[in-house]
Every structure is written in structure tokens, then in C-alpha cells.
Design a protein around this nucleic acid. Sequence first.
DNA 1: TTGAAAGCGCTACCAT
DNA 2: ATGGTAGCGCTTTCAA
Lengths: 331, 331
Amino acid sequence: MAGVHPSTVSRVLRGKESLPISEETRLKILQAAKSLQYRPDQRARALRLGKTQTIGLIIPDISNLFFAEIANTIEDHCYNSGYTLMVCATNEDQEKEIRFINDLVSRGVDGLIIASAQDSDKPIRELLDKKIPFVLIDREFEDLPTNAVISNNEEAAYHAVEFLAKQGHKRIGFLRSRKNIYTIRKRLAGYLKGLRDFGLEEDPALIAGDGYSFENGYHGSVELLALNPPPTAILVSGNRITFGAIKAIIESGKCIPEDISLIGFSDTPLAPFLISSLTTISHPLEEMGKRAFELLIENMEASEACQLQRVVVETKFNIRASTQTLCSVEK
Amino acid sequence: MAGVHPSTVSRVLRGKESLPISEETRLKILQAAKSLQYRPDQRARALRLGKTQTIGLIIPDISNLFFAEIANTIEDHCYNSGYTLMVCATNEDQEKEIRFINDLVSRGVDGLIIASAQDSDKPIRELLDKKIPFVLIDREFEDLPTNAVISNNEEAAYHAVEFLAKQGHKRIGFLRSRKNIYTIRKRLAGYLKGLRDFGLEEDPALIAGDGYSFENGYHGSVELLALNPPPTAILVSGNRITFGAIKAIIESGKCIPEDISLIGFSDTPLAPFLISSLTTISHPLEEMGKRAFELLIENMEASEACQLQRVVVETKFNIRASTQTLCSVEK
DNA sequence: TTGAAAGCGCTACCAT
DNA sequence: ATGGTAGCGCTTTCAA
């Protein structure tokens, strides 16, 4: 339409200031582009350039606020840097994770951010082999060095036990979602260390749960409450199971925190509005997203494989103790 | 590696049963592909085929459970049908919406599902012009026929007013997030119709709020509570503002639902665990996601522009009245 | 300052 | 039953 060669158009539209283009043709091309509402075909660009300006994010669950907030932050950073984000949710299913990784790679994502389902590290090893830039978030593999942004799980759990010990608790339960997840294992380690250091009861029966659903949390808590004697405090490691725990406790006729203290490893903006004010350990989700994004970009831009980095962010302990507590919940 | 022509490889790997391929070469190729871990380059395929097996989802907010749940459902359907989903969050910003749409289109998505920021319908009109398959979700444009999956907002609001009227309420407030959103306008219409039909007070001051944040909800509620006399019930249309409302009410020293009834237009799985048991109107999010996906696929597969469809799903009224209510909330 | 040509990896079509 | 060829839309290099 501007009567010039495609390559000329490309030169103008890529806007390399350095290239010599006559002002006349430049204007003709820009006008034509505007009137045609021309948008370069990113598929073709991607094919030609070997880059897609695309980042893949693989998380276990979009509708878990923990990951949703991370996704949101990363989205923002992508937007501001001209990347498009592809979000995939595995539902903690390793097979899905593998399929997503393969799919995203064959779509040519420039990099990946992954909170792995962690049944195995095989898919992650493959990424290392293929030298595809990626950053793990929230969950890493202890025996596989990678870029990772994680939080101080062990210390946080330890600190929570310390807090409870100082309040006079002797029997503290640990309710977890999936057993084999990095975060859970680290928190369990911190919990056990805390028990030892503060001379509290170590009873394997105080450790319950394996599954991330509301129901898993409910049943795990019922087990804990059935112990003799039952724990007077429970550390809950998982977002959804926390509510299962609350339900179980209330149904058992106990009050939070008078009869039993509950400390959740996930914060939610709704915590102050909950029926049983919940002490939580909150994660700096925006910081985690930001650091992961920056680390990824750094790796993508590095011509050669650059030093692997491990970023540890600090969690925060939010004490919430209600003066009054409602001890019944409808079905 | 198999010593055959690329086109032969393509034929085998695309697995058209009908094509004549000798079993021998077929095996050679499959073996070679496996040992090389060959994965077809989707960029090139997309360029060649004019299809990307990709769907774009544009929503206002990932970390709002309403949309997160929808995204989750759509993701699942995509996964099961071999599509990859690109999720973009606009934060209710029209400019972002436009950029996302353009970006996704130039990336060659096969279709789009959009919950528009709705300052203007221009970007949607352009999609119609370009004949790109898309489905609106939750929010449609009344004067622009498109495919859409929406809920029965007006009836739901009307029904809520009816419910409150029968309980004896005379002054009912309406707290909304963004004024100009389709859902909000429809609900407001239903509310007004309800007031009229049941002979309740119509007072413009009873309609408050314009903004979707927690703070917006808080301030809007403070205004409502300052009225003389204040409303004895409030319809809250928006997810985050609901919690601002609860905070404002509790701070004012009132109890829910004894002093003031609250009906939220968004349900959350946490509703039973809230400090003030909240009656909610819940949306069939999974159904909405499913219908939108199916409708989109139908449109993508149709060779020519097919009949526009408008799907209306039914909301559900969840009455939750706590026997006891906690009337204080910590900061 | 611009045009021409090549090629990214794939697949559909036409030959053989 | 298989090979060759062309071309999707773009950008980069080289030539004019």
C-alpha cells in the first residue's frame, strides 16, 4: 500500500533509529500502517526471531489466593515489560505439569516460572538440560540446584512453635496438606526442631493430614481432636485445609483460641473477618512474584547460562486474638 | 535421522490414519522422534496452519475468587480439549484491555473469552468487525449483540429485595462497585423495581459506592450508615467491597444481621466462616466457564459466522443467618 | 536509501 | 508409499 518493499516496512516499524530511512517513505509507511490497523503477526515474528515475548507460569491452583496473588503480580510485571503471560494450573497433578511444560516450551516461551507439583523433579531436570531459563517459586528441590524464590519456611514454623511454647502450650499439632511438598517438609522440620528446643511433646500422632482439600483438612483435624489428650494448638500448613480445621474445631464444641490455638501458614485478606480470628504467617507474595520475574528476566537476557540464584524472602507473623469467639457454625 | 523426508515425518506424526505409510518407515520415524524427544515447534505450526490451539481469557482480576474460579474452570476445559489458555488481567483498566486484545489477536489466539472492563465497547466492536470468535462472560453490552454468558442479575436483585421486604425491612441500601458495569446496572434495576413493587422507600441516598476496592466498600458503607435513618439492610454488589461493608458496620457498633442485614452478590466458599454470617447470591461459576468455553468452541469450529447466542445462568440465594454474631473486629 | 533473497519449522499439495 | 516444493509473515544480510 505504501508502494515499498516489505523489508523496508519492517525496518521502519521496528523503529531502529540508526537505520537510514528517508523521512518521506517513513511517513508513508506509518500512515499506511495506521490506516490498515496493521499489527505484526507475532507467530511469524516468533518463528523468525526465535523469541516470543512470552512467559509461562505454572502453578498448582489459580483459585487459591496464595497463587492467584503471585500470578497477579507476575502478570503486572509482564505487562509492564511487554511480555504476555501464559498461566497454567496443574491441580497438583504431575502429569499435567509435564504436559504444560512441554506445551509451553514447544510454543516457544522465553522463560518459565514454576511452582512444581513435586512428585518428581524429572520435568525440571529436563528444563535444565535444555537450558531453558526458568525460576522455581515457593517450592524448590533440595537436591537440585536451580533458580528459586522461596520463603523461610523452616524458621517461620520454628518461630510459631516458640510463640506457642511461650504461651504455655505443651501439645502442638501439625496439620499439613500434601506430605511431599518442599514447603511442608521444611515447615515440619522447623516444627520438630521447635518441639525439641522448647521441650515440648513429640508425638507422631500429632502430625496429621495429606491432601490439600477442605475435606482433607477437616478429617485431619478430627483425628487430631480425637487424640487423648488432644493438642491445645495446631499449626496448619495449607490454605484450604485451614477452613476444614476451623469447621472441625467448632463442631467439636471447642473455641478458638480459648480452647485451641490455630496458626495458619497462609494469610488471607479475609483473616480479620473470620469467625475464629486466625493467627497467620503471611508471605510477601508481591515480593515473591517480583523477585521471580526479575530473576527470570536476568536469566533470559544472559547470553550464557548464568549463576543460579536462590532468593529467600521473609514471612511475617500476624497475631490475631479475638476477645470474643463464636463457637457454632451452621452447616 | 530416520533417513526420510521431513514431509514424511510430518505425515506420520500428524497421524492421519488414512494416509498410506509403510509400517517400516512409520516405526523408524516414531523411534527417532522418541529418542530425539522431538516436539513439533508450535510457532511454525501456528504460522503454517493459521491456528494456534490457543484461547485468550481477559478478566478484570485474577485474585478475585469470582474470576479465579471461572478462569480455573476454563483452564480445565482447555486442557481437556488440547488448548492452551492465556489469562490476562485488566484491573478494570480499559487501556489494558485494548492492549491485551490486540496482543492476543496478533499472537493468533483462536478465540477469546472476555469479561470486559466496559468503559467502552469499542474493542469488542473491533473483534466483531475482524470476525474473531469470542464470548463475553459475566458482562455484556446491552446495545451490542454478541455471544455472551451472563447471570440473571436483575431477577436476583429483585428477589433479594423481595426477601428483605418480607422480613419487614423498609429502607434497603444498595452498595455497588463500579457504576457503569453491566452487572451492576442490571442489579440496580432489579433493586429499584423491587422497591417499587413492594412499596419500599426509594431514596437516591440509599445508593452508594463507585469503586471495587475494599476501601471503596468501606467508605460507601460509612455513608449509608450515616443516613438518617440508616438502612436496615444493604445489598452489596461486588466481591471486595463486601468486606469493606462488614468492617464499617461492625465499627459502627451494629450487629449483622440483628441490626442490619447484609446480602452479598458474590458468594465465597468462606462465607460460612465469616464473622458475620453473610447471605449471598452465588453464581454457578463452573457452569458459566463451561458454557462460555463450549460456546466459543462452537463458534471457532463454525466455518462461517454463526448465530450469536446469549446464555443466561441462574444464581442461587443462600440464606445464612447466624444465631450469634460477633460485634467487634480488631484493626 | 531501498530492494532482493533467504530462511525460521512446519504441512498441504502435486509428483513420482 | 514417499519426495519435492511452496509458502505461512516476518526480519536480516547482502547487493545495488
